[in-house]
Amino acid sequence: MIKIWSMKKNEDAAAKKKPKTSAAQIRVQKDLTELDLPSTMKTNFPNPEDLLNFELTITPDDGMYKGGEFLFTFTINSNYPHDPPKVKCVPKIYHPNLDLEGNVCLNILREDWKPVLNLNAVMVGLQYLFLEPNADDPLNKEAAKDLRENRSRFAQNVRTSMRGGYVGDEVYADVRPKA
């Protein structure tokens, strides 16, 4: 018995010495090891020490956004998984569920987030937006209107925008893969 208690004390002392890994970091670490991404998605860690800030590139292999390369940043705060990750699209793109600042309208990033979801679910959700853009609850109202009223015109606009062209008054980013 005595031995056990002294062991516990040593453990406590050791725990104090180690720089504390936050709960969010532990959880993110687990999420990352469980990632099971299709070949259309790649993560990138600009600072490999920092698991809470990273990038995701989606290159849809189907749908209207095929041929584009879409970079997202993930910012995870210390309250993860109680708070959802903050996700932004870096290039300015023409999409009903993204605004011109790159904010994303995806239910599981907002009102439907729950802590049993993980990063894999968010990433798969993001990719789904490119396969099935939806006109309900839009962030880019013009794009949503086009999609609702004339799907083929919307598809044409997507192609124009992905080349860095204008749709209406807005010029969008060229998202064709470099090199």
């Binding site: 709960a23 532990i26 959880r27 687990k30 999420d31 998984p81 802590p115 049993v116 993980n118």
Partner: peptide
Amino acid sequence: GICRVAYDGCCP
């Protein structure tokens, strides 16, 4: 399901 740590472990 929340912290993904074993039940027999403890929360973070």
